[in-house]
Every structure is written in structure tokens, then in C-alpha cells.
Design a protein around this nucleic acid. Structure first.
Ligand SMILES: [Mn+2]
Ligand SMILES: [Mn+2]
Ligand SMILES: [Mn+2]
Ligand SMILES: [Mn+2]
Lengths: 225, 225
DNA sequence: TGAAATAATTAGATAAGGCTAAATTTATAA
DNA sequence: TTATAAATTTAGCCTTATCTAATTATTTCA
């Protein structure tokens, strides 16, 4: 029906579209998929031919109503697999991404539904990313604010962390920064570095700006009053 | 490293080699893999080029010492997955084959080892086929006799049943014929059909010759005295 | 021992997914 | 507004896995 590669492109477009809420440029997609631009152009023609994307030459691409559910299905597979690997097969959260990124294309919907059942229909994956339901609903997903956008003194709860860099994940878990953790923002350096004090003890942790921008949080100081 | 397709060829050669203990002919492999003969010829050249098989034009092919462990690794994955699907994800034994046949190429060895652990290092898959150990040892596998080779009056234990035809599997389990079941051979028709009476009750079941040839058994009347 | 039949290989094509180099379009900025 | 820069697409080639049609080996059997 649809190759694993094509599924990965659709997933990538879905992600990049939400990042920048605009049509996704060839160059951005090429960078993200780690291929050359002409490769993207030819793939976009094929996907457009089959109505999974709306592609306007020189203007970028976006998913159609046919393409979105396919992307969501793969994302569901990916996140359920990650949850399963950590919860039932004792994988570390730093090492689940690659295994899930391959398997997501090869498990059946039945397999996905069964592990969802085993796991008790989890709402989020180990990195805090929302898992679409079996009917591909993602409305339960809260957006959250970027960690980098808080003020010194704020008390915030970690909602989501980026999941592709194993070293970063190991660093974060070592310092007790996980989805659900409550932290105090103790310093924001002029060059963007954010220093946190997790409630879990172990003392303060500094995160570079780039990381602080990609961690999603929920404010406690504001929402609790 | 090695494509899923190539892995399937190696697995097929391993299987067919054991079936007929001889070099595997192009035509036999083509039939088994459901491709045309020239497709096999060109694949054999590639596999031979990379030393996974010993290929002599017009004379057939066999696995090398490099090829065997690769086939065994995939077989291990396949059978562990089947066991996992039935035991932990409530799949029926009739429907596990296709799911396992895809996933076998995409799970890591780590994944395989983890599910083996979860399952308590099982020796056989749901159809009675032996699961190679983590170091690819299959010496524990007992060969068994073909069901078709017994005499009327023999009491035999089912060891292994063919696993690719879901309808047959549903039929067998409906009539209580599973690995481990003890049955009496009550009739062998001149055209090869074998009638069995399973100890599990439910009365006699007739199996066509072809099926009786592909079911592997262990004799109880002989071995118990 | 030679046909005739069968099995296997070679030749040449296709589709998917990728690449590099060249051409073209769009954006930027003087 | 035009020239340069940047982004994108076209053109053409490669590899993998497959096919059909044609050719060549090997068996079989009269
Ligand atoms: Mn993927
Ligand atoms: Mn994740
Ligand atoms: Mn397979
Ligand atoms: Mn099996």
C-alpha cells in the first residue's frame, strides 16, 4: 500500500507543519529526512500524485485530509511502542526511539491496539508526547509552554522533552528531569541558558537555550491560583 | 547490512535444505518464495557474491557457515514473536504467522532477547517448532516422526504442526490437535487419509494425507516401554 | 546416442528511492 | 528595477528487486 519511507515522509511533514504552522519547504524536509533536496521533490510528486499531500512547486507542501490520518497512525504506533518498550521490556527511555522508528511501520493496527490495551490505554509516551487514540484523536493533547519562556522564580511541571537524542535523555533522567517532574526556575542567563531546581532533589541543573526551547512545560504558579 | 528480502531467501534456503537434505534448486526456491526463476538466479548471485550461500549454476544452492547463523537468527525472531503474540498479546495461533513474518526482520536482537526473557526462554513456538537459543543453538530440537508413518492402533503425541495455513490451524485447534496432544491412530485409508482420536475428547478427526505428512509426532507406544 | 522436454540462465525492462550536476525560479538587496 | 544569491526543480545516473522473452544446459527417453 504505502512504503515505510513514504510513511516517514508523511510523519515528518506532520511534525514540521505543526512546528512552523505553515507549508513545509523542500529544504526543511530534506534537512529533517537527511536526504538531498531533489529526493524530496521527487517524493513530493509521488505523494501528491496519490493525494496524500498538497504540493505546489517552489511553494512547499502540506498534508491533505487523506495524509493526516496516515501520519497519526504511524505516530500512534511509534509512541505506543516506546511506552511498551520502557514499561514491559525494560528499555531505557534513551534507547527506545530508534527501535520504535523502525517497528512503527511494520506492526499491524491490531498489534498496536493490543499493546495499548496491555498498557491501559496510555495518554502519553515516555517523553511526554501524546498518543493518538485508536480512532486517531489527538484533542486530549495539551500544548504547554516552552521552558525557555518562563521567568526566574516560576514553579513549573515538565510536560514533554525531545526524544531523539539519547545523550540528552540520559542527562535529563540522571538529573531527575522527566515528564511530570516539578522544577523551579532559578536562573535564566542572558545567553538563554536556564537553570532549574528539580523537586526530586539532587540540586540545580543547567540547560542550554536550545534544550530549554524544546522542553514543554505547564506553569504551576499561575494555574494553582 | 542485509535486506529483509535477502533474509527471507536465506531463511527459505535453510528450510528447504532441511526438507530435502540436498542443494536447493532454483525452481524449488522460486516456487517457495513465489517469484520467477530469473529472480532467484540473480538473488543467488548476490548472496553468493557476499558469501552467504554456495551457488553453483545449474546445480542449486546451499547456505555457507556465514549464511546459517543469519537464517537461524531470523527463525529465532520469528518463533519468539509467535510465542509472544499468543502468550502475551492474545493472538490466536492461526494468525501469528504473517505478523511474525514481517516483524522478524525489524526487531533488534535486544528486543528478541527481552521477549525471550519475559516468556521464560521458551523452547518451542506455538506450532511446536523449536526456537534457537540466543547463541543460535538448535541441538535441543527433536526431529519426530511424520504422523503419516504410524500404524493403526499407535498412540502418539503431536510435536509439530505446519504453521502457514490459518484455516488448517483453526481446524486443528477446534478438534483439539495441538503440540503436546496425545492421539490414537484409529484408521489409515488407502489413499493416505489418517483418522485420529485425540485424548482431549470430542471424537475422531480425519486428516488428508498431505496434512498427515507435515505433522510431526513422537511415538508413545514404543518409547514408553 | 540423439532428439525432445525440462530447468536454468542471460538479456533487457521497470519501479522505487536515492544521488550529483545543471537549469530554473524566487527572493534579496543594491 | 535589476543583479546577485538562495532555493528548488530537471535531467540523468545508480542500486535493488522484480518481471518477460530469448537462449543455453541438463535430463529424459525413444
Ligand atoms: Mn520510521
Ligand atoms: Mn517519544
Ligand atoms: Mn519474513
Ligand atoms: Mn510457527
Amino acid at each position: 500500500m504505502l512504503s515505510a519511507i513514504m510513511e516517514d515522509y508523511l510523519k515528518a511533514i506532520y511534525y514540521l507543519q505543526n512546528e512552523a504552522d505553515d507549508r513545509v519547504r523542500t529544504s526543511v524536509l530534506a534537512e529533517y529526512m537527511d536526504v538531498e533536496q531533489p529526493t524530496v521533490t521527487s517524493m513530493m510528486k509521488k505523494l501528491s500524485e496519490r493525494d496524500f499531500v498538497l504540493y505546489e512547486p517552489y511553494r512547499g507542501v502540506e498534508l491533505t485530509d487523506t495524509g493526516v490520518p496516515i501520519a497519526l497512525e504511524i505516530i500512534r504506533h511509534h509512541r505506543l511502542l516506546e511506552r511498551y518498550l520502557t514499561d514491559h521490556l525494560e528499555y531505557d527511555w534513551a534507547e527506545v526511539h530508534d527501535e520504535a522508528d523502525r517497528l512503527e511501520h511494520h506492526i499491524s493496527s491490531k498489534f498496536a491496539d493490543r499493546i495499548a490495551e496491555q498498557l491501559g490505554q496510555p495518554a502519553v509516551d515516555p517523553h511526554g508526547d501524546p498518543i493518538p487514540t485508536a480512532n486517531l484523536d489527538v484533542s486530549g493533547a495539551k500544548d504547554g509552554e516552552r521552558l525557555a519562556d518562563h521567568q526566574v522564580g516560576d514553579s513549573v511541571q515538565i510536560v514533554r522533552v525531545p526524544d531523539t537524542d539519547p545523550d540528552l535523555l540520559r542527562y535529563l533522567s540522571k538529573h531527575g528531569i522527566l515528564p511530570g517532574t516539578v522544577v523551579d526556575v532559578v536562573e535564566i542567563a542572558p545567553f538563554g541558558m536556564v537553570t532549574l531546581d528539580p523537586d526530586s532533589g539532587d540540586g540545580p541543573v543547567a540547560l542550554p537555550e536550545e534544550v530549554a526551547c524544546s522542553i514543554s512545560t505547564q506553569s504551576l504558579t499561575q494555574s494553582s491560583h
